[in-house]
């Protein structure tokens, strides 16, 4: 593959300890790190695929219950959360861009914004969850909501809590990763010479966004 363009990116300025002794060059190490991260993301995709599959089966079995229960969810908050998460994906992409163009302060600011958006997302989700608990719109045998009494509504909320719950765990994990990346950025670890760490952290956050892009129409817009 012709990569003559990248010949300008040398090793000068890259601390020696960043390269593992088992890699012949930083380029190879970077490529291995990216590949490893994508392998991990692939397993994450398959983890959520199982839940989407379960969702498909129960939606086939209880079409009416899924429709009624979905229309009872708070669409405004769901849409707001979609906008928040998309914007956070954008800010993390900008953070990587600024790190690569040697603007660590701007990169740190973008990461702080991303973490705040993540907190906002969890806050909005908490408001929604509180509402479900108040209405007893809970999974399985705990379902006792007055508003929707169609058989199968309990199954909708089982899938709803499993999917948004697992996604929420990923948001919290992503926030932890972004906080670590922020700390490293403030230490001045990332630059145009070396930025793979912030890049991989960003990849994880984008995956969280990707999953929500599918959850939003499947749960809120039936």
């Amino acid at each position: 593959m012709p990569h003559e363009l990248s010949s300008a990116a040398g090793f000068e300025g890259v601390p020696e300890e960043l390269i593992g002794h088992h890699f012949s060059s930083l380029g190879r190490q970077t490529e291995a790190m990216r590949l490893g991260m994508w392998l991990f993301l692939a397993t994450e995709v398959l983890l959520f695929a199982g839940l989407f599959c379960g969702y498909a089966v129960y939606r086939f079995q209880f079409p009416l219950a899924f429709q009624e229960s979905s229309r009872h969810l708070n669409i405004s908050l769901g849409t707001l959360n979609t906008l928040v998460l998309i914007t956070s994906s954008f800010t993390v992409a900008m953070a990587i861009h600024y790190a690569r163009t040697d603007k660590p302060r701007a990169a740190a600011l973008c990461l702080i914004l991303t973490i705040l958006f993540a907190l906002g997302f969890l806050g909005i989700k908490a408001v929604e969850y509180a509402e479900h608990f108040r209405e007893h719109a809970l999974p399985g045998k705990y379902y006792a909501a007055e508003a929707v009494k169609v058989p199968g509504a309990a199954m909708f909320y089982t899938m709803y809590f499993l999917m948004t719950g697992l996604h929420g765990v990923h948001v919290i994990a992503g926030m932890s990763v972004l906080s670590y990346i922020l700390w490293r950025t403030l230490q001045g670890r990332y630059s145009s010479r070396y930025s793979v760490g912030i890049e991989l952290g960003g990849l994880y956050w984008h995956l969280v966004d990707l999953v929500w892009i599918f959850l939003y129409p499947l749960l809120y817009l039936i």
Binding site: H3, E4, S7, G10, S24, F90, H97
Partner: peptide, 24 residues
Amino acid sequence: ESALPAKELHQPEEHGGRHSAVPY
């Protein structure tokens, strides 16, 4: 390591100053 040819570098995403934020 410094003697390795430039071809060893596989960093197609890093084009230095040509990186643009417009697509984002």
